[in-house]
């Protein structure tokens, strides 16, 4: 069904949202919805009109076991546990125990030697690991839970207007056609992730940080990398799915 008379489409959408469609008609309608974005819009408009009717239902606090079951279903754990499994490379103890210099060199050595042709290496501030403080994020592949990319930068008050992130993609990652990889800063509070820009699958990359983000980045919880439509997220917020994620670690 390519074209639906707008008036009939509107009536069907209203019946669908209100819930008066008989089961079989509803299933057929849902099949059409999957391929008809115009009709999806009409349905969304009816949902926006009618759903507030539910606000007349009084609030009821759900019993605690509901939350536990959700946690278990999604993350296979109970609620009290920390939100992310600690792996050796993301544990603070590991970074503290390792002598700063060798550890940092281990992570970022390749980045110091090579930079993409697009950037003039001379224009990128060099890092003296002996004196400057560094932030390092070891981003884990969400599926395999193994390190997939490292991101590091020189933190603190210096270079706020000239800050760069050094990225190293580990292994041979592939990007699906017509998609983009977008890097996000995840703030420490509950505010929304902030885009740091699009990245590629190249092993070594340098990403310039807008001046306004330089300081928030030092205080961020971590970074995330999501797959977005070509050109990046249309809404300015991640739409997913999420591929890599990691916490900020001060090295």
């Amino acid at each position: 069904m390519k074209h639906i008379n707008p008036e009939i489409g509107d009536q069907l959408a209203a019946d669908y949202v209100l819930g008066t469609m008989p089961t079989r008609t509803r299933q057929r309608f849902e099949a059409i919805l999957k391929t008809n974005p115009q009709l999806r819009k009409v349905v969304a408009a009816w949902e926006a009109r009618l759903t507030p009717m539910a606000s007349s239902a009084p609030e009821v606090v759900p019993p605690r076991h509901v939350w536990n079951t959700i946690q278990k279903k999604l993350f296979g754990k109970h609620s009290q546990e920390p939100e992310m499994q600690q792996t050796w490379w993301s544990s603070l103890g590991f970074w503290r125990a390792a002598t700063g210099f060798t550890t940092i060199m281990l992570v970022v050595s390749g980045l110091l030697v090579l930079t993409p042709a697009a950037e003039d290496p001379a224009a990128i501030p060099t890092i003296d690991p002996a004196t400057d403080s560094m932030m390092v994020v070891i981003m884990e592949d969400m599926q395999t839970q193994s390190p997939a990319m490292t991101v590091s930068w020189e933190s603190g008050a210096t270079n706020l207007d000239n800050r760069v992130l050094r990225l190293r993609v580990i292994g041979h990652a592939e990007m699906a056609p017509d998609t983009a990889w977008e890097l996000w800063m995840v703030p420490h509070d509950d505010s929304a992730p902030v885009s740091l820009g699009l990245i590629t699958t190249h092993e070594l990359q340098v990403l310039r940080v807008p001046q306004a983000l330089a300081q928030p980045l030092d205080e961020a919880w971590g970074l995330g990398m999501s797959v977005e439509p070509k050109g990046g997220s249309p809404s300015g917020k991640p739409t997913g799915p999420m591929l890599y994620r990691g916490k900020c670690i001060m090295a």
């Binding site: 939350w67 993350f75 995840v186």
Partner: peptide, 30 residues
Amino acid sequence: LAALLSRCVLHDQKAFAALYEASSPKLFGV
């Protein structure tokens, strides 16, 4: 709430817990 939802996309379980905390009485009521 929209910020919490966008953090859930990045698998932020803490944000998910906050979202549940904020919205579950209303939604359970429904």
